[in-house]
Design a protein around this nucleic acid. Sequence first.
DNA 1: CTGAAAGCGCTTACAG
DNA 2: CTGAAAGCGCTTACAG
Lengths: 343, 343
Amino acid sequence: MEGGLAQKIKLSTIADALGVSTATVSLALRDSPLVADATRDRIKDYARAIGYIYNRRAASLRTSRSGIVGVVVHDIMNPFFAEILRSIESELDRSGQTFILSNHYDQLEKQRTFIDTLLQLGADGVIMSPAIGTPREDIEMMEENGLPVVLIARQVEGALVPVFRGDDAYGIGLATNHLISLGHRRIAMIGGTDQTSTGRDRYRGYVLAMEKAGLEVKPDWRVPGPRTKQGGFEATGQFLALKDKPTAAVCWNDLVAIGLMNGIARAGLVPGVDISVTGYDDLEEAAIATPALTTVWNGQREVGRRAARALLDRLGGNHEPVTPDLIRPELHVRQSTGRPSQR
Amino acid sequence: MEGGLAQKIKLSTIADALGVSTATVSLALRDSPLVADATRDRIKDYARAIGYIYNRRAASLRTSRSGIVGVVVHDIMNPFFAEILRSIESELDRSGQTFILSNHYDQLEKQRTFIDTLLQLGADGVIMSPAIGTPREDIEMMEENGLPVVLIARQVEGALVPVFRGDDAYGIGLATNHLISLGHRRIAMIGGTDQTSTGRDRYRGYVLAMEKAGLEVKPDWRVPGPRTKQGGFEATGQFLALKDKPTAAVCWNDLVAIGLMNGIARAGLVPGVDISVTGYDDLEEAAIATPALTTVWNGQREVGRRAARALLDRLGGNHEPVTPDLIRPELHVRQSTGRPSQR
DNA sequence: CTGAAAGCGCTTACAG
DNA sequence: CTGAAAGCGCTTACAG
């Protein structure tokens, strides 16, 4: 029953002990129907008894299948990605694939280093939220080297690979229209960047909704940059000092919204009463924030699930046409939004 | 410059093209001083030009070094672990090791599956926060199979491997004493479990501090279980309904504390004024919570850094004696604690 | 249903 | 400073 490091146990150890060939052992351990039941059981029992450990590197060298899938995101400390990862994980788990994770922190070089590692390990595929500035050529290089790619959250212009993300322009429109319908006329947009497709789409959606309602869009009312709680918190001063005092803020995401609400509360105002705030993503946290956050459900679970399935499909040899499947967001109204107050 | 999948490029492709042996190419690519400078440059340039990809599986099969380190935690969605991971990542990065991550969600079976995978991949080592109920034998099995283990956050009774964690009894004592010194006499403890060494240590520390101050410790005043924001939030009702109405709560961690503060605010009370609350960990978030959270710094960065270094040391062949290095926590006083109010 | 043998792409003594 | 050859531990045609 002991593992023991004394003599490395390999297929041939078992073959020799049982008087069969390594081919038979190999097939038996993988439950091949080519092996007689009795032989198979005898082999598996013995292997277990002496603590045999399958050497995947050797197998993978021979089969050129590694059972490894790479996952690359901006930052796992961001709960948005953490929720996506969780659902990727549960899909991958049941397929027996191991996944390797890396944060690129939007540094192209870090992303490239990791992609290199994946190629060297012979990874079977990769799911990635590409770093800002990822060129189409990087994606093509991976595909050419036999590493199938599935993108999440962000697009790479011109890359012909599946992308799973929410319909950002539509989603931010839901939040903006909600505020407009409550009577808000001066609405700011806090956070986000124009450097990503997501950032551009959300800003566009906000502008579109404002214009459709015949409302003025002041460039000042956009405070770009913040993407974290800390960022939202720190943007409070700038927001409260805006000319014409907006009565509401459409935030880049839930983190920024929660940070901003904290900042607003510190300034002695009541978020949801004095100032309305919307988030984006509907993180688990949104529902228990104070006040509970009105936000846009962005389908993280769905994004992760579909991306993982799409990749597994490709690994299974399925070469379906690429459907650029936009997930339709939903507005979840809670307590952080209300009619505009006089201030 | 094209990568191309046409003909798989390997060492011998380069050797043939340049009229040298694969041994020379192998050595040159790894900057061996055995190869003449001119030869090395010629080889490296050519390799780059034709888009050669190093096959780590083959190398690893030969050298039995994989360059892979496993990291196993309870849940990466927990910011406590995310902060530890970040510092592990930065240490490992500079050593050129790739890391594979897995959550065990305190399920022993999931942890075992992952450990199996690491053994099969020939991982060089593993850093783990062991799942509840991990027996000493599991750790020993890994070590016997050549997989060095370093533990973080939790201990495994009887396992002779390095453990990096904070001094929990001491840390919770800091929080408890702080409340006592503010004049609190009825102090509850919210969250945590007796099933882990950490859980037992923190409860013990709380009890000890209370007794030292001559205060009564009512079993009722312990609300075990919660470990997340959601959990803290949901425990609010039970906490507010406690007999003899405690004026303060020592929480299991920052997440529970923030959830509880949200719940208290929803109930119309002001955390930090009507009821004092302390956290544990000092997550980045603690400072921007409303009110800013008084908490105990638990040295996440430090835990990650030291664990990674200890593992790398062991990989480097260093067999130093095991120092059970407890990190000394520090109290960070903010706005969530104050003198007891009459209620 | 089972076995003998080649080969996946590296690295490492060993010669020269 | 460089080359020829063995071997890491599997799997896969190919025979029988």
